[in-house]
């Protein structure tokens, strides 16, 4: 877009973007530092336009709005005097599409932050650990589920050595049984179904 009046126009959001406050500053461990440096050198995602972070955000917001509109396509809107269940979803969906379009459009016209790199390992590790808990707590019971959660979750970060890991898992499982089952009397399955009453 060469004919723009302000070629260096930047959306306010992107000015302070990736390192936000002290929170986002990586506290210097060697692997983290080198990984981040590598991420900065190559542009992570080549999308036409100059603010790929905002572009992705805009597209995500627009798609949420479109999904809402599509899912609600058959719901009755009613009249203004008698609003029915389709009215509010349609209104919010349309507003989201509008907001998404504004964010997308702006990202195409202006410079901005690039899409940051992704931390696949913690993302998968933490999500898998929680899903494993959800899948096992009702059939295998609380104690195995907590042990599995701690074991899988351990892979998300810098893994602990086996002995501290076992101690942590054991302590958490025992503590949870003592607190939630004996202390608060919550109806939780403690051991695998069928093995224990």
């Amino acid at each position: 877009m060469p004919s723009l009046p302000f070629p260096n126009l930047r959306p306010s959001s992107s000015v302070a973007t990736p390192p936000r406050g002290p929170s986002a500053t990586p506290f210097g461990t060697a692997p983290a530092a080198s990984r981040n440096a590598a991420a900065d050198e190559r542009t992570p995602l080549r999308i036409p336009g100059r603010a790929s972070q905002d572009l992705a955000a805009g597209l995500l917001i627009t798609s949420f709005g479109l999904i809402a509109l599509w899912m609600g396509r058959d719901w009755p809107t009613g009249t203004l005097a008698y609003v029915q269940s389709g009215f509010f979803p349609r209104m919010i969906g349309a507003l989201m599409v509008l907001a998404g379009a504004v964010v997308t459009g702006r990202s195409l016209l202006a410079h901005g932050a690039a899409l940051p790199s992704w931390g696949w390992r913690p993302l998968f590790g933490v999500t898998a650990a929680v899903l494993a808990f959800a899948g096992t707590v009702e059939t295998l019971g609380l104690v195995p589920a907590v042990l599995i959660l701690v074991g899988v979750g351990n892979l998300a970060g810098q893994p602990l050595r086996p002995v501290p890991l076992a101690l942590l898992g054991g302590a958490l499982a025992a503590g949870c049984v003592a607190l939630f089952v004996w202390g608060l009397g919550l109806p939780l399955q403690v051991w695998p179904l069928g093995v224990w009453p």
Partner: peptide, 18 residues
Amino acid sequence: GLAEIIASLEQTGGVGRT
């Protein structure tokens, strides 16, 4: 909670924020 844990592990290479 979860997003914070993931982001914190990512930014510090798995050690966690001090």
